[in-house]
Design a protein around this nucleic acid. Structure first.
Lengths: 225, 225
DNA sequence: CACATTAATCTAACACCGTTAGAGTGCCGT
DNA sequence: ACGGCACTCTAACGGTGTTAGATTAATGTG
């Protein structure tokens, strides 16, 4: 019963790597499973339901990648790293995940780990929830843009970033001086290094939060006094 | 020549608000313009090209929303705010923007402003490029999830977040203790407040960067000595 | 004015998509 | 032996982005 479902999800992930999200059709998936397309609708009520399962499967390796018993900073760093790697591990993985918004088993597990580490650092419930979403948003946006960048520019017919340089360098030269100064740095962009620095910045910001517990707002304070 | 193109983009943005990205078809757009669908292909080589123009149009208001002559922190804060508002101003706006990766006029202008402010704060080219992308990733991820959350949960048949509470509270209670503690906070989530705090954290992290100029790596230092 | 050219739109159609209806097929418990 | 169930099939519907090629409207040129 649930065995067949898992096999379908596994096959769809392989197909995703081969043809991308736009090429992932029910008919193509059916052919790979030596089956007719409508058969899939006995196992999944819709394509979106299948995509939801795929999204959960994509981040399934994340909870297991977190070393237990480590200090919260280590947990958070490896959590961010594992989630990024999971999203990037499949072609269009970030786009699949972004389109889902479903409360899958693994999604909940990841959230639980992040919230636990954040509260262990001294944040209250709201602070932990905020920061947990913030880092997830960052990871997701980062991965979406990275994969989109690759598909659009690196694996384009051009084959290099030369086309991008042409588009960037010309109009920037006069009207956009700051951009013009940074254009070489941007073209040589290293997503991994940038991500690491981004996570560092985030963790550094957390230090401030845990050190200085939130003050009551002026209104409620005056009411109290 | 370019006049007709702009009219098509404007109409497509109105249609986007009405029917969402999934409902935005070339035939529906053509009907709104009192034209047959293939006519659009005289003005745009593909639907993706139209979406690219739409994405650039969505963030067109951003550069104008930046007060000139302000200190860089103010510039960056209002830039983040304006970009977020722009993405949220159209239905599925964030998803449209995320799928584009095009070097439009306004995209370049926004990048130029951000890079200028960051370098004015003392960051070098690479630091400015990194942080500019980081904040953009964050804004984008935030907006995508917020709009997706609304479409999937708030405007669902259920009409409220009750369905989400049901899905979250039950499985969380035993296996996910931290999540369980935060579930009420999460359900009462205020995206605006969270975004403001996220930008604050980011700006705070920048202070550290500008204060402490990067040290040479150990390897190159030892070579020097 | 007549005419060739160009811009813009049309109709018709292609190949494909997600999805549904409803008819089989094989197995399993009684 | 047989009813029911799990699973798969064929056929088709309405829709999609996109192309080919004919047709109209406008425009500059002799």
């Amino acid at each position: 019963m649930a065995l067949e479902r898992d096999k379908v999800v596994a096959a769809s992930l392989i197909l995703l790597d081969e043809v991308g999200l736009d090429g992932l059709t029910m008919r193509a998936l059916a052919k790979r499973l030596a089956v007719q397309a409508p058969t899939l609708y006995w196992h999944f009520p819709s394509k979106q339901a299948l995509l939801d399962q795929m999204a959960d499967a994509i981040i399934a390796p994340v909870p297991a990648a977190i070393p237990p018993g480590e200090p919260p900073d280590t947990v958070l760093r490896s959590l961010a790293d594992a989630m990024r790697r999971a999203l990037l591990s499949r072609r269009d993985g970030a786009r699949v995940y972004a389109g889902t918004y479903v409360m899958g088993e693994n999604v909940l597990a990841v959230a639980d780990i992040a919230l636990g580490a954040l509260m262990q650092k001294g944040l209250d419930e709201r602070g932990a929830a905020d920061e947990m979403f913030n880092i997830v948003y960052y990871i997701l946006g980062h991965a979406i843009e990275e994969q989109g960048f690759q598909e659009r520019w690196v694996s384009a017919d051009d084959g290099t970033v030369a086309g991008m340089r042409r588009l960037l360098a010309e109009p920037a030269s006069r009207r956009f001086p700051s951009l013009s100064r940074c254009v070489d740095t941007i073209l040589a962009s290293d997503f991994d290094a940038r991500f690491r620095r981004g996570v560092d910045s985030w963790l550094h910001g957390l230090e401030r939060k845990e050190a200085a517990p939130r003050v009551r707002s002026a209104r409620s304070a005056s009411v109290k006094s």
